[in-house]
């Protein structure tokens, strides 16, 4: 349980948000040319990092906008929040 600083609404309780998993997984540009291995990689395989992770969140019970955060999954400390399309901050 922690607080998330929504870039649009400010600091709110985590229960207002929906986690969207690992960020920066790019949708294939040419889906018809993908092999089964590449599909598996895109759809299922995850880094599932213990430590600093880039991830997507949605303020589901607030402004309903998507944004990214950088969070340490070993202690749930949030390092940075940035909007969709913005360049991710370097660790």
């Amino acid at each position: 349980m922690f607080l998330i600083n929504c870039p649009f609404c400010g600091e709110r309780e985590q229960s207002e948000f929906k986690a969207g998993g690992e960020a920066h997984i790019e949708r294939p540009k040419q889906p018809t040319e993908l092999s089964d291995d590449e599909w598996a990689e895109f759809l299922f395989m995850r880094k599932n990092i213990k430590g600093v992770q880039y991830e997507r969140w949605n303020h589901a019970h607030g402004c309903r906008k998507w944004f990214n955060i950088v969070r340490d999954t070993s202690d749930d400390q949030i390092k940075a929040v940035y909007k969709m399309g913005e360049k991710p901050p370097v660790k």
Binding site: M1, A19, S74
Partner: peptide, 14 residues
């Protein structure tokens, strides 16, 4: 389960 990835062995109160 919580819906976010975490290794903290704690969960959310809600």
């Amino acid at each position: 389960t919580d819906d976010y990835i975490s290794y903290s062995q704690k969960g959310s109160h809600d």
